[in-house]
Design a protein around this nucleic acid. Structure first.
Length: 212
DNA sequence: TGCCCGATTAACT
DNA sequence: GTTAATCGGGCAA
């Protein structure tokens, strides 16, 4: 279990100003690091898409050397964004049914990304309930497919930048306690503890096993 | 070209 | 516990 200090993360900016350029540089610096550093640093930050979203409570890291990563076998039409610069979103179709949202990390060409697995809903609850056809708050964004459905994210957002509208990312305020464990739903590279979550959050897609 | 499987979810028994 | 929904990619033929 890790204790992590508040992030120095750029805040979203309204327009194309000098301030906006500065924000973009900070964003690149934040996402341009190792995916294994970025992933836990994202826990506790707030993600909004068109004003709808909340606090990120669960993510998974996918490194390009990892057989479970979509980039492992080289670029394809689907995974092309993963091979681009950091700070952009990679959206893919899962099981032919659901959409899954990723943030591209590491320097361009590394083809590594963080999968967004769960969010604690804080903004736009009504829109999320409508899209998800449920009123149960705990299940609105608990899982990569549910999260995209609640926020209204589809293939249309593939390749968009994270540091500009309609996306917004806000730094966490206080300290957060982060837990790590094996990733969910994969059959390759099963042992890697590259799933990160906010300790004891009720909004996780699945509980983390107690530390051995 | 065809077949199988997957970074999933909801609705079953 | 099991299964159906359904599509992009890897790999065999």
């Amino acid at each position: 279990m890790l204790r992590v200090p508040p992030l120095t993360l750029r805040l979203p900016s309204g327009g194309a100003s000098d301030d906006d350029c500065m924000q973009k540089r900070l964003s690149r610096a934040f996402f341009g690091r190792s995916v294994l550093e970025v992933a836990p640093d994202l826990i506790g930050t707030t993600l909004l898409f068109r004003g709808v979203g909340g606090r990120i409570v669960e993510v998974e890291a996918y490194h390009h050397t990892d057989p479970a990563a979509h980039s492992f076998h080289g670029p394809t039409e689907r995974s092309a964004v993963m091979f681009g610069p950091p700070g952009y979103v990679y959206v893919y179709r899962s099981y032919g049914i659901h959409w899954c949202l990723n943030f591209v990390c590491e320097p361009e060409g590394s083809a590594s990304a963080v999968l967004l697995r769960a969010i604690e809903p804080t903004n736009g609850l009504a829109a999320m309930r409508r899209r998800r056809s449920t009123t149960e708050e705990r299940l609105l964004c608990a899982g990569p497919g549910r999260l995209c459905e609640a926020l209204g994210i589809t293939r249309k957002q593939n390749g968009l930048a994270l540091d500009a509208a309609p996306f917004a990312l806000f730094a966490r305020r206080g300290k957060v306690e982060i837990v790590a464990g094996p990733r969910i739903g994969i059959t390759k590279a099963v042992g890697k503890p590259w799933r990160y979550g906010l300790k004891d959050s009720p909004f996780l897609s699945k509980k983390f096993s107690p530390a051995a």
